[in-house]
């Protein structure tokens, strides 16, 4: 098919060149480096690893010397699963990350769905403001919002919630609120709720109220209408919102670090520790590779079903 002359061929080339080059250099190449480093040997050097190949004098091609130690470590933990006393720190971190991410997603959905639904069903004039109020915290600093929970959950008698509880006589001694799984969960739900609400809202607001009226007219009770009409029609919004919460939650590092104390292991934190204090970059890279592999499924799901509106626009691209 012949193209229209919207951009002269050369113009098109340069327009495409810029983002292609940028993405290859700053996205594709770095990912290739992760793969490479995950097969390297840690070494006290700058950067702190030996490459997985060596060039000896006279070589045309380098000798490959991949070091699978980092992957073997993860594999050994898998094999040792169930053995008492085995050191399962990576596996435990993985399990905990998935668990917390799943719980966060579930809680966000349970809180966010009715919330988005009621915003979508409120007066048109009010919707804008209500939605803006959801966005507002999202635009302010993420770190400071986590910090707010540090203040609220502080486990000394100075913590805000503890002060209220003590003053009300509900407890005798301050509760251990901070630095545990619960604190991390609260922080994650708090931080990720807008990611759930926005796609759900975008989906629900498009739901034709006449469909609900038609269902009611045909004799369905409100709950039946909800289960048989509203819920199936908002599937895309649910998938999109859930994946938008789940994916970053799995890799989250800041919230467990600030609210979880030393005990809450999460896989993002393991990467951070291996990268920082432990200076074991190959291990950090190997864990990152497993993280990408684990997240591929949800990412594909997000792309397939998650488009808030399933507009298929096969043709518009071709004419240009």
């Amino acid at each position: 098919m012949r193209r229209q002359h919207f951009f002269l061929a050369r113009g098109r080339f340069w327009v495409g060149m810029l983002p292609w080059a940028w993405m290859l250099l700053f996205f594709a190449l770095p990912f290739a480096l992760i793969l490479k480093v995950s097969l390297s040997t840690p070494e006290l050097a700058i950067p702190p690893y030996l490459p997985p190949f060596v060039m000896e004098p006279g070589d045309v091609l380098p000798h490959l010397r991949p070091d699978f130690a980092s992957y073997r470590r993860l594999h050994d933990e898998l094999l040792a699963l169930g053995t008492p006393g085995a050191d399962l720190q990576y596996l435990a971190a993985w399990g905990n990350s998935l668990l917390l991410a799943a719980l966060t997603t579930l809680l966000c959905l349970l809180i966010g769905y009715p919330f988005a639904y009621h915003i979508a069903r409120s007066r048109e004039a009010a919707r804008n403001t209500l939605l803006m109020l959801v966005m507002l915290p999202f635009w302010t600093s993420f770190l400071l919002r986590v910090y707010a929970w540090m203040v609220l959950l502080d486990s000394s008698e100075l913590g805000l919630i503890n002060r209220v509880l003590l003053a009300a006589g509900l407890v005798d001694a301050p509760l251990q609120l901070l630095y545990n799984q619960g604190a991390v969960l609260v922080g994650m739900v708090y931080s990720y709720l807008p990611f759930m609400v926005l796609p759900l809202y975008a989906n629900l607001v498009k739901l034709d109220p006449q469909l609900l009226e038609a269902a009611a007219d045909l004799g369905a009770r409100p709950w039946t209408t909800f289960l048989r009409v509203t819920l199936p029609l908002s599937r895309r919004g649910i998938v999109a919102g859930s994946m938008l919460v789940f994916i970053p939650a799995v890799g989250e590092f800041v919230i467990p670090d600030l609210l979880g104390g030393g005990d809450v292991l999460m896989i993002g934190r393991k990467i951070w520790e291996d990268f920082g204090p432990n200076q074991d970059w190959p291990m950090a890279a190997a864990v990152a590779v497993t993280m990408v592999l684990v997240l591929i499924a949800p990412i594909v799901l997000l792309h397939r079903h998650g488009r808030a509106d399933g507009r298929t626009d096969g043709r518009s691209g071709e004419a240009g």
């Binding site: 190449l29 994916i247 993002g268 990268f275 990152a288």
Partner: peptide, 25 residues
């Protein structure tokens, strides 16, 4: 290309960060 341009949005930041550190070092 479509995958590459939007992937940074859905990749955990720690992974992107690590990959870029590897590039810059």
């Amino acid at each position: 290309f479509a995958g590459m341009t939007t992937a940074p949005m859905v990749m955990p930041e720690v992974v992107i960060g690590l990959s870029l550190v590897l590039l810059f070092t």
